[in-house]
Design a protein around this nucleic acid. Structure first.
Lengths: 301, 301
DNA sequence: TGAGGCCATAACCTGAATGTATGACCGATG
DNA sequence: CATCGGTCATACATTCAGGTTATGGCCTCA
């Protein structure tokens, strides 16, 4: 039985949340534009599926049970991810007729941009954003070719012909599964040890890999990878399953570190930071929606 | 049109990810136990829905387009949340016939436990876990009554009759929407200012609210709340929409802070930390699965 | 040149989700 | 005390997305 069969559909989760917020099934049904019996039946089917009763029904409304409150909170997390998906997808869809065209490197497009787009949507609901993802070179090319209004890159320097501003920092962290021997170390890893260790990495050309290679260049350079995988999440999955250590963006492993599914291993005497920058063609200071988006990405005071 | 209509169903996302991982639709179909045409048609319908083509088909397989790679990464985030949902739901379902019974406070049950359960499931796939959520008092009662084997509480002290160990720390942070005046402050907030400001909070009795009240007791105590909402996510939504400031667990707002949908406001001279503890009845040191789960929650070296 | 991958199309089937219609319950209100 | 307005549950017909099997075209590789 696959995961999708054990978790209710997104529509059901949305309904669940609406019922919890509304305190009534009929109210939630009206909000979502479906009939009351449809809502009632769908909630019931969720309860059947989960084997837990989620709401105490009464003629005066429906209140979440203890389990129901918990389940709706977990459901909200799924819907938040869905919201990010939607924001990103909408930007991809609007490739043609858009007013704000953003070009971003993969890590930023993957982990940060969807959140910014959600924020932008609440601030400027009518701004259509389009998104192009690629490496730093591609971002620069899009900007210089007039195909994008604002770019985001992670890297050591601003590409030629562009101006930019640092909007944040990304730290690369060495991560292992809890069962890995490194998790029991009481001393920090040395750069030499790290350089000599086969790692699970993304394919050649990924920004992470370049930064890592540069940082370890004077310690013997990067060892031959243990595994080369095509997406960050595939790398994470491999690490979690115990295949070996990896070095990944802190952005990418935040959740896993909190949940302790991955553990960070300290490295001594080496800087694995890189700046995240917003960039634009020299002279073309961002204005309008681009300026708005830029301001959303700035760090808090 | 609601969000659920713009985002593909979980089954479709799962398929999407499987195709990307497999490099072939037929292969993904076999993995998920459906027929190849079904997979093909479902992917096509996702592409129609999003208005973006996701895979380059060829007689030698299907490779993600640039947009496809991005979309599958976003999809993976949704599926991760779904996995956490599933882990939690399974624990709720197994209330009766379970071997490891966990009692946890709301914040931990909501934000941390699902991740631990995922990790536990990979380490001990056959351990059925049940979950009871409640406040610290309820957790203590369950443990002392023999209805739970291991507890997790956030709070200032270990409840009487229990032993425990600190497994982490939770910091309470003052958060506002980017448009809020506090986000432009160049100086830290004073505790007196914070105490005098009406906040958006969860209902009376929440652990967060107690800790906050205690920390501000000597500064005039907590002002009357601006809004009282029933779930952390409802509070977050209200803050994001600009209703006012709130004080929330760092765990709860991590994502929003990264995405800059919420901004943290520094507070001077006040400790808004609380320990997260695993607890058990005095004398009953955790053993077996409880010990395993406990070890998963311990901090990295 | 044949075998074995791959994907697409066609025709059909099933089941989940929805809508309409209806009834039972509770609480506030006159 | 009867009524009205809100709640949720049940019954039944309908629709449609997603599933199946069967088949064909295309490419690669031995």
């Amino acid at each position: 039985m696959t995961l999708a069969h054990r978790v209710p559909e997104l529509g059901a989760l949305e309904l669940l949340i609406a019922v919890a917020r509304h305190g009534s099934m009929g109210g939630a049904a009206r909000e979502l534009g479906i009939s009351q019996p449809a809502a009632s039946s769908r909630i019931r089917s969720v309860e059947r599926q989960l084997g837990v009763s989620l709401f105490d029904r009464s003629p005066s409304g429906s209140r979440p049970t203890e389990a129901g409150a918990l389940v709706t909170d977990w459901a909200r997390r799924i819907m938040e991810a869905a919201e990010a998906f939607d924001a990103g997808a909408q930007a991809l869809r609007d490739r043609r007729d858009s007013r704000l065209r953003v070009a971003a490197s993969m890590t930023i497009a993957e982990y940060l941009l969807p959140g910014w787009l959600i924020a932008l949507r609440t601030a400027r609901p009518d701004t259509a954003v389009s998104l192009l993802a690629g490496n730093s070179g591609a971002v620069a090319a899009r900007l210089l070719g007039g195909e994008a209004d604002l770019g985001f890159v992670e890297g050591l320097a601003v590409p030629a012909g562009l101006d930019g501003t640092v909007i944040g920092r990304d730290r690369l962290v060495v991560v292992v599964a809890p069962a890995h021997e490194w998790s029991a170390r009481r001393t920090a890893l040395t750069p030499t040890e790290l350089a000599a260790s086969p790692l699970i990495l993304r394919e050649e050309g990924s920004g992470t890999r370049q930064v890592l290679g540069a940082a370890l260049a004077s310690y013997g350079g990067l060892a031959e990878p243990l595994l080369e995988l095509s997406s960050t999440t595939a790398v994470k999955a491999a690490v979690v399953s115990g295949a070996g250590p990896s070095v990944l963006s802190e952005l990418a492993v935040r959740e896993e570190l909190v949940a302790r599914r991955l553990l960070e291993v300290e490295v001594a005497g080496i800087h694995l930071r890189r700046d995240l920058r917003a960039v634009w063609p020299t002279g073309h200071r961002p204005s309008g929606p681009a300026r708005e988006l830029l301001s959303l990405t700035r760090a808090a005071p």
